[in-house]
């Protein structure tokens, strides 16, 4: 457990945190634990700071020990909304992929392999000050600016703009579906050892249809090949029957065009593109060094 101050303004914490594990997370948050288990979750420590004056409300601190900084990034990436906050008092908040976000009394942050939520039940200037101070204490000595390497593979062809504020790093179809509903079940062979990034890409023409980009990296080439076959059968059955090259293709779908391309253990999928050429260009961009984020 990281060392947090016993006192935060008028709020004081208990001596010891409550330790939540994968086995007990549903007792702690029935209906919510799946999000953390969808990443590589270690454990969660919970502390509730209380004030002698109950009208001030409480400050709840949840510190999630994740398997890697990528997992902590993934949890924060599920919502980039809120006010970016610099956890280094002398620093400026990062404009892209901030380390911490504040809004409505809630601070969410990533610091190395930690993800944390610090929530004041009653927001006030005083509670905000203490929430931010606790966030800084959690982050002390840990880097909060790490970005998964896979994010660098998010590239777009000329004129297209991948949106950093819609980018989600995921390992599970549950998280993918919360950003972009693809299918009720897992049609991409996802899991803790698979990395995925999805975002919306703005088209060259203002007001035009945005496309969806999904970039996946599997632990082996075979896993990627199996995943592509499963995706084609479940989502693009018309391509599963077509003869020809299996590792790349395109098809019209209800919301424009879809394309896919496998390159070794990497699989890139574009959906909802306005035309076949655009869909193909989107999946080819990573290999051709298209514009990144």
């Amino acid at each position: 457990m990281i060392d947090l101050p016993k006192q935060a303004g008028p709020w004081a914490r208990p001596e010891n945190p409550r330790r939540i594990t994968a086995a007990t997370i549903f007792d702690y948050m029935d209906g919510g634990g799946e999000l953390y288990l969808a990443y590589r979750f270690g454990h969660l420590d919970v502390l509730e700071y209380k004030a002698a004056d109950a009208s001030l409300g409480t400050i709840l601190v949840e510190v999630y020990q994740m398997g890697s900084s990528d997992d902590a990034f993934g949890l924060l990436s599920t919502d980039w909304g809120g006010e970016p906050v610099a956890l280094d008092p002398a620093g400026q908040p990062q404009a892209r992929f901030p380390e911490a976000l504040y809004g409505g009394g809630l601070l969410r942050l990533r610091a190395g392999d930690l993800y944390a939520r610090v929530l004041a039940s009653r927001e006030s200037p005083a509670s905000r000050e203490q929430v931010l101070a606790l966030g800084r204490a959690i982050a002390k000595g840990r880097r909060g600016d790490a970005v998964p390497e896979l994010v660098s593979q998010v590239r777009a062809p000329a004129g297209w703009s991948p949106r950093p504020d819609r980018l989600v790093f995921f390992r599970s179809h549950l998280v993918l579906n919360s950003a972009y509903f693809l299918a009720a079940g897992d049609v991409l062979g996802l899991g803790p050892d698979v990395e995925g990034v999805t975002t919306e890409c703005r088209p060259p023409r203002p007001g035009g249809r945005a496309a969806r980009l999904i970039v996946l990296r599997y632990p082996t080439v075979d896993r990627a090949a199996v995943a592509l076959r499963a995706f084609r059968e479940a989502y693009l059955p018309e391509t599963a029957k077509a003869a020809g090259v299996e590792d790349e293709g395109s098809a019209p779908i209800e919301e424009g065009w879809a394309a896919y391309r496998r390159d070794g253990a990497m699989l890139t999928i574009a959906l909802d593109a306005p035309a076949r050429d655009a869909a193909r260009a989107l999946v080819e961009a990573p290999g051709r060094g298209g514009a990144g984020l």
Partner: peptide
């Protein structure tokens, strides 16, 4: 009005 899982006060 947003998915959570834990309530985010910005969406209450």
């Amino acid at each position: 009005c947003d998915k959570g899982p834990q309530p985010d006060p910005r969406y209450l």
